[in-house]
């Protein structure tokens, strides 16, 4: 009886293992922070974290600043956060208004950005203080 019980228990544990493997989702790191322009928080800025390497399974994470300057990154697939890795940060005046008025952000923060950040697994907080010259 005793070896039988052992066989049965090993079967059961195998079954549990089979049930719980494959349940680990892809892990995105949460990224948030505050953006200020000349010391003041600005609403409606678009914060893009663009991957440095053009890996096919990674794309740009995006967030929009609120009235208090805070943003949090979101990712395609209706997900929150962004995959860990190295990023070029591009901050531009996001479009939202129909009359086309945008907040002007100098090119050194978007098209010719030199801001880089490394996102690590877990929680990340990156604040950006921009100057409009």
């Amino acid at each position: 009886m005793r070896p039988r019980l052992q066989v049965a228990l090993s079967f059961l544990s195998l079954a549990c293992l089979a049930l719980f493997t494959g349940c680990n989702g892809d892990s995105l790191a949460s990224v948030s922070g505050v953006v200020t322009l000349d010391g003041h928080p600005v609403r409606g800025l678009e914060v893009n974290f663009e991957p440095v390497d053009a890996a096919p399974d990674r794309t740009t994470g995006t967030g929009y600043t609120q009235a208090d300057g805070s943003y949090s990154l979101h990712y395609p697939g209706y997900k929150k956060g962004t995959p860990p890795g190295d990023y070029i940060v591009r901050i531009s005046g996001g479009e939202s208004l129909d009359d086309g008025t945008r907040v002007r952000v100098p090119a050194k923060y978007n098209a010719k950005s030199e801001l880089t950040e490394t996102v690590v697994p877990g929680k990340n907080k990156f604040d950006f203080d921009l100057t409009s010259k």
Binding site: G44, E46, T60, T62, G63, Y64, T65, Q66, Y71, S72, L73, H74, Y75, P76, G77, Y78, K79, K80, G94, S96
Partner: peptide
């Protein structure tokens, strides 16, 4: 962006 939750991202 494709399949992007603009409301949750703040826009």
């Amino acid at each position: 962006k494709i399949n992007f939750d603009y409301a949750a991202a703040g826009s």
